[in-house]
Amino acid sequence: MNILQVGDFNFDYYDESLFLEFNENTQTKVDKFQWNHYFSNYQYNSVFAKIYYTLENRYKCGLLVKKLNRDLLQQVKSGSYDVIFLWRAVHLYPSTVRELKKVAVVIGYNNDQTFSKHHPWWLFYLLKRGIPFYDHYFVYRASDKASIEKLGCTSSVFMPTFDASRIYPIENVNKQYDVAFIGHYEDDGRDQLLLLLIKQGFKVRLNGQRWQKSPCYAELNSLLGKDIEPVYEGYNEALNSAKVCLSFLSKLNNDTYTRRTLEIPATKTVMLAEYTDDQADMFKPDVEAVYFSNHQEAVDKLRWLIDSPDVASTIALAGYSKVISGSYQLKHRVDDIIKIAKEKMAVRNGK
């Protein structure tokens, strides 16, 4: 099966990871079309260029976006693809998707909630208009399925995954923190809980983006003794550095699970997460993970885990066993894509 994977490819743990997994599968041969370089990997030499190309990239209009679409069509015309997989194809015109569908099965995926009302109008407006021309669309959250199918496209959930080559236990690691949160800031009270944990005497690690927007930023920085910064290459080490890792859910995306739902147990670290039925179905409460419904319960559960290291170790091992034995790796999602692609190719060929 000849596949062209189309995407930004700006972060190796998103579309690049899937591309590498396609390469590992004996049923697929894969090429890529990437567009991060069209915007100079988002780094510019002048203020004018930064403003101009940021606006073009944001609003998906202008000469570079036109060129991106033309170049993709040219690559498809010069190649011979059975399937074109579009990862978060926010820059593609509906007319481009329609042309792609004339020569191959077109399958899409957005690792965000396409129809969330919390997103600005410009983020997914082209993507939404192009959905009727896809053969199938994978969604990260089941709540998006009905909206996709209303547009005449079949849809299914692309279950969350972790990349075992990037996320794994580090043996004999020094668990120097009681608890860590590695993630972005949202105005949902997560900053207040982290501040409370610090004041309760827990040794806290905090890394992530957009924390400058928190009203608690200055106090968090002062108590932590250093600036709150994101981690990229050291992400796995960060998860492994704590006895317990927190998992908050994005309210902007109406999350009921997240990547960290899998990544934290995959490091043999106890996950302390906001309770949802979906997460509890994946990891049994107080057996394979631990959940809280309010700040005080989070404090009490963390205190229990820190004061009971044998219990914490048992839960961490059970969570690790569940995630390793389950269908939660990218290779399983590649199998899902191949299955759908074969079905769509059979329909296309009249079989």
Rank of each mutant, 00 (worst) to 15 (best):
L194N: 07
L195H: 08
L196V: 02
L197P: 03
L197H: 01
L197K: 03
I198V: 12
I198M: 12
I198H: 04
K199F: 05
K199W: 10
Q200C: 13
Q200R: 14
G201D: 06
F202S: 08
K203N: 09
V204T: 02
V204R: 04
R205A: 07
L206N: 05
N207I: 05
G208K: 14
G208L: 06
Q209W: 13
R210D: 15
W211S: 09
W211Q: 09
W211R: 01
Q212G: 02
K213T: 05
K213R: 08
K213F: 12
K213C: 11
K213N: 15
S214H: 02
P215I: 05
C216Y: 13
Y217M: 11
Y217I: 06
Y217G: 02
A218V: 11
E219F: 14
E219D: 12
L220N: 13
L220I: 15
N221Y: 13
N221P: 07
S222F: 13
L223N: 03
L223C: 13
L224F: 06
L224Y: 09
G225H: 10
G225N: 13
K226V: 10
K226R: 06
D227G: 01
P230M: 05
P230K: 06
V231G: 15
V231D: 12
V231M: 12
Y232C: 01
Y232K: 06
E233D: 11
E233A: 08
E233V: 07
Y235N: 04
N236A: 13
E237G: 09
E237W: 07
E237N: 14
L239I: 11
L239Y: 11
N240Q: 03
N240E: 02
S241I: 03
S241N: 12
A242E: 00
A242W: 00
K243R: 14
K243C: 04
K243L: 01
V244P: 03
V244H: 02
C245F: 01
C245S: 13
L246Y: 01
L246K: 03
L246P: 11
S247M: 10
S247P: 01
S247C: 04
S247Y: 00
S247L: 13
F248D: 02
L249C: 09
L249V: 05
S250F: 11
K251I: 05
K251L: 09
L252W: 12
L252C: 09
L252V: 09
N253M: 10
N253A: 12
N253W: 06
N254C: 09
